[in-house]
Design a protein around this nucleic acid. Structure first.
Lengths: 221, 221
DNA sequence: CATGTCTTGTGAAGAATTTCACAAGAAGAG
DNA sequence: CTCTTCTTGTGAAATTCTTCACAAGACATG
């Protein structure tokens, strides 16, 4: 296979929902590849991704035209294209801030390493646990974070501290030069607009389920 | 305070994004209440919720009219109204399926119990850990799930098993009569449309960050 | 009681996203 | 080479979601 010229950059703004779906398609494609499938149609991709074939084609069309009419998409090639689009061709350095139960669980989360996200360090304020190892990764003192970051240049910080410390920690992380934050604390954080934040709020998701249960208006998924 | 007649039921379909924001407003309101604030304007609510005042008013207007012109919203009353809307007036019984690191971390997650989500049991296949206690909750054998569910009538299952078992577990949980699933496994699950599923896919969120870093087009949050 | 300030609730406008529907390309069969 | 079958890529239409903008209500003050 010739190395593709990799044109994954539209200057148009792409909806977050589209990016999410691309991640999903990537998973479906990898599963298909594991089953030995050579090629996949937008219909098949939609089926497993929980959307429609038109949506699949539209999503991909923002970035180029990757299929063959009458045949569908070449699985291996589309995997490579979507990986490029999502920026998964390289290793991303991650700090996890907060060595509580969730922070510790995330250190070992296979999904991260599988995708090239490497956890360099876990930070915590509690002197009792600083210095310990969690699944091969050392727990470092929060006071070291800025200093370490200057050397290691991490790309992403995962914040897993209690809600009341989330904002302080976010500011620390931003002033350490980190430009992307994944926030697990159940509190919104405010950062300069040059920093990208994604929040994962588990209580909020559960509340969404409670709402659906109370107002059961047949939603599928 | 007179017990409100609780009219939190529009027959119109409400967007998921609206429900999410209601959860957020609830948090902001609780913080305001903790600070002793009596009343809050849609502007103040929007500020902390990361949205606009028009959006706040529109969101609330789907369910009724809770504010006072010129004054804003009564904090205590709006907390109670939104809680009703979201179905948080009662206790929700939760099973966690999969006693790995993430499952175990979720058992102790304060955000759940704070909102009336009570974890009745944690299920796992591994006989080595069945019978142990995790933060006061017993680990039970997966083979017991259907039987236990018939008695305990849980409302929600949180699936925290590896991706390759997610579908099987989802089917088990559905046939046990559970109608709402929160899926932490990094794999889509297919269930009948009478069952509501929310997926939290951490790798996918990280990929969204990677995309933002690669295509840095100043997004705030 | 009249006046001024503030903030809601909401139609209407605007923007964004999804779905439709079909022309056009690709491959195999005859 | 022609015909049939299949499936993409994409403008246009439809739908959904957000923002605008303003009339109307509520309170305080004099």
């Amino acid at each position: 296979m010739t190395r593709s010229p990799a044109p994954p950059a539209p200057e148009k703004h792409i909806a977050e929902s589209t990016v999410r779906r691309l991640s999903l398609y990537l998973r479906v494609l990898e599963q298909a590849a594991a089953r030995g499938q050579q090629t996949l149609s937008s219909d098949a991709l939609a089926e497993d991704g929980g959307t429609t074939s038109a949506q699949v084609r539209k999503d991909l069309s923002f970035f180029g035209s990757f299929g063959k009419r009458g045949r569908g998409y070449d699985v291996a090639e589309l995997v490579s294209q979507i990986s490029d689009i999502l920026g998964l061709g390289r290793e991303w350095k991650v700090y996890i801030v907060g060595a509580g139960k969730i922070g510790a669980a995330l250190v070992s989360y296979r999904g991260f390493s599988q995708r090239g996200f490497r956890v360099l360090g876990v930070y915590d304020n509690n002197p009792q646990i600083v210095g310990r190892m969690i699944d091969g990764v050392g727990v470092r003192s929060m006071s070291q974070l800025e200093h370490d970051a200057a050397r290691e240049m991490p790309d992403i910080a995962v914040i897993t501290v209690p809600a009341e410390h989330a904002q302080t920690v976010a500011e620390l992380v931003v002033s350490a030069g980190i430009r992307a934050i994944m926030n697990f604390a159940p509190a919104p954080i405010h950062v300069p607009s040059t920093v990208t934040v994604k929040s994962v709020n588990m209580a909020l998701e559960l509340e969404g389920l409670a709402y659906a249960l109370v107002h059961r208006d047949a939603n599928a998924s």
